[in-house]
């Protein structure tokens, strides 16, 4: 379970997250929507400790992410993250991309790491591409490679930061399908997304962010059908 309490984040004088309170239950799929600059990415970075916070707390399974003594690297193996930019390691094959972290972070043997990597690549539909370098993969395939790379750490949570925003339109579907598959398998997911179809069909809840505030959160039916906040309605009217 992820528990976020009164989270404040500043970049210098810029107040980017203004007191976020949010719980994400195990097995839940939460979509986060909102205009560009509203603090969605920053929220994810605060959850896995890529950004420090100035006030409040983030607790993941009873571990305080931002506490002094926390082994943040160990904690991050629980929190897989997929970015807008897929960031494949260009000098490694698909298999090596996925096997690297299990080997060096978790200390798996070479053979074990390869097995895990092959399993996850097959999982995301890249079983044919094990020995291919990223430069020979399409954007959609590289993004699925990034998903496999995160899954190889056997995370309990997955954070997606606009995983499809940098893709050519015809490649969006295959990545959304992979995310849908993870959701069906029961993965706990926080998905920052501009894909309203995905948010409506796949998520248990949708959160709308506006200028650093979580304005509204609820089941997709409520957010898309009966939004309480003026800002939410305006935003949804514009993206449609």
């Amino acid at each position: 379970m992820i528990e976020i309490r009164d989270l404040h984040k500043y970049f210098g004088a810029l107040h980017v997250l203004k007191g976020i309170d949010l719980d994400v239950q195990n097995g839940e799929v939460l979509s986060v929507i909102g205009a560009s600059g509203s603090g969605k990415s920053t929220l994810l970075y605060c959850i896995n400790g890529l950004e420090p916070i100035q006030q409040g707390s983030v607790i993941v399974d009873d571990t305080d992410v931002h506490a002094k003594g926390t082994d943040i690297n160990k904690l991050r193996t629980k929190l897989g993250m997929v970015f807008q930019q897929w960031n494949s390691f260009p000098h490694l094959t698909a298999l090596e991309n996925v096997a690297l972290a299990p080997k060096i972070v978790k200390g798996k043997s070479k053979a074990e790491a390869r097995d895990i990597a092959a399993k996850q690549l097959i999982h995301v539909g890249l079983g044919e591409k094990l020995d291919v370098y990223p430069s020979a993969l399409s954007g959609g395939q590289q993004q699925r490679l990034a998903i496999a790379r995160a899954l190889a750490m056997e995370p309990e949570y997955m954070l997606f930061d606009e995983a499809t925003s940098a893709l050519d339109p015809e490649l969006v579907g295959e990545v959304l399908d992979t995310m849908r598959l993870l959701a069906e398998e029961g993965m706990t997911m926080i998905c920052v997304t501009h894909e309203m179809g995905f948010a409506r069909d796949v998520s248990d809840r949708v959160a709308f962010f506006h200028q650093g505030v979580m304005e509204e959160i609820g089941p997709p039916g409520q957010i898309f059908g009966d939004a309480q906040s003026e800002h939410t309605r305006k935003f949804l009217a514009n993206v449609r």
Binding site: Y45, N48, L50, N73, K74, R76, T77, L79, G80, M81, F83, Q85, N87, F89, H91, L100, A101, I104, V105, K106, A146, R149, A150, M153
Partner: peptide, 23 residues
Amino acid sequence: PMRRAARSLGMTYWQDLRYVVFP
């Protein structure tokens, strides 16, 4: 972004340097 991706996998600063940045 590449380095954030490496760190998000649980790599330490030095592992990121050794296995991602240097190569």
